[in-house]
Design a protein around this nucleic acid. Sequence first.
DNA 1: TGCTGTCCCTTTGTCCGACAAAGTTAAAGC
DNA 2: GCTTTAACTTTGTCGGACAAAGGGACAGCA
Lengths: 255, 255
Amino acid sequence: MPVSPLFRPIDVAPAYQKVADAIEREIVNGRIKPGDPIGTEHDLVRQFGVNRSTIREGIRVLEEGGLISRDSSRRLHACLPRYSKLTSRLSRALVLHEVTFRELYEASMTLEVASIEGAVEQASEENLAELTDNLARSEAVVGDPAMLAECDAEFHVLVAKASQNRVLQLAREPAAQLFYPTTEMIVTGVAEGGPRLVAAHRHLIDAIRRRDREAGVLWTRRHLQDWRRGFEKIASLDRSVEHMYMEHAQAARRR
Amino acid sequence: MPVSPLFRPIDVAPAYQKVADAIEREIVNGRIKPGDPIGTEHDLVRQFGVNRSTIREGIRVLEEGGLISRDSSRRLHACLPRYSKLTSRLSRALVLHEVTFRELYEASMTLEVASIEGAVEQASEENLAELTDNLARSEAVVGDPAMLAECDAEFHVLVAKASQNRVLQLAREPAAQLFYPTTEMIVTGVAEGGPRLVAAHRHLIDAIRRRDREAGVLWTRRHLQDWRRGFEKIASLDRSVEHMYMEHAQAARRR
DNA sequence: TGCTGTCCCTTTGTCCGACAAAGTTAAAGC
DNA sequence: GCTTTAACTTTGTCGGACAAAGGGACAGCA
């Protein structure tokens, strides 16, 4: 017979976790604002009454979560978590879960179409300027697969940004990060890949400028289908995302 | 005049970071498989030749990233990062960036429609059984807003799972986690809210079973529009997601 | 005035050694 | 065979220590 629940389980979190939680609460509640200094480790030792090693373990937890960071002089301050840092964790998780390129492709089809729809509706002049600048840089490096792939990744980040929807921006990011290395491979392996990619970007910018939703969606689909056709010349869509992707993710995270 | 970039910045990562990176590499490369033991802190001290405090800081980093965890006996082992743990970080970031409910609503409209489309196409008998079970539990707690909101959140997780697309599952999660508290508020404040919610779920399951894509999309839209109408009785869609949401996110993370 | 070098203080990253609490293993006892 | 007891191991925490690097103030020099 199970005993009746007379007592609740006691919260026995280790001290470093409690330190992290306490600081996190202050930041999330807004009592510590992004940019505010957290104080030195010694300060925290005094405030929490625990050893510096314990404080440092707590700091690592928060740092990894993107809630605090150290400036050039290594002083601690609260900060607004950067999406790209957090989403690289998710990309890594997708790799470890061995998702297939088909899943990536189908999810991205949805996410990128939604991005362009938002961009067509909401893009500002500044967004258009950024996109145009990106296009110019892409044209300049159309012969360099690595650089072009980087420009492509940035282009789609800018489209998502132009949608003015940060939830969407964040949702597409983990999948998008996994695209980058294949884009490089495809542009390397398929002769007409680079020019087609740049042409698609040009049409997309044009669609955004003319607020032409149909054209935006059409060219986004074509752009992705191009990727797919190029990819299928190299491998099967049902292959799982390979481990090599992590090198890129790691490099991106450290930036 | 700027100096020409003769030298690249030297990589001077602190030791704990190098420890974390080294272990991460082994896991991501697959040399350490999920479930494999990492060894004791003392083992790592010997292998890396650094102090235990340094090892422990590195471990915190990996633990926070979901790459390793401690079992019941606190021994370290590699593990498959759980989406929900990672996405709660993102939800927190969305809160701190003060995204609006409008962004949440519009992004979710896309993500949930994509989920149901995938589910209609791909759902297995097992997925349907889980959904049906969820529906039964929802009907049983239709009078309890907190429990019903929890069931609703789980329902949509199950729909996304039925799509068999893990990228999509992951992409919708950060936004979905922010819905939960408002659903509770709406069901509390709007008398017909609970029954309408359950009815929508019933129609969605039916659409999946009949592989009726149109009906699935239709009822997903209605379901979300219901949420929106309910929400607008309480507050404006352009209000930013409030800090109170973090309590839920924190509770979910610890589970 | 503007730049450089120096001295001092603070802060961080790392190390060492220590210990209680909790878990593990294995032997001893029934 | 099952329980109890007694080592042994591992983790979480502590205190103190020190070198390296950064910041600030101040003097010297062009």
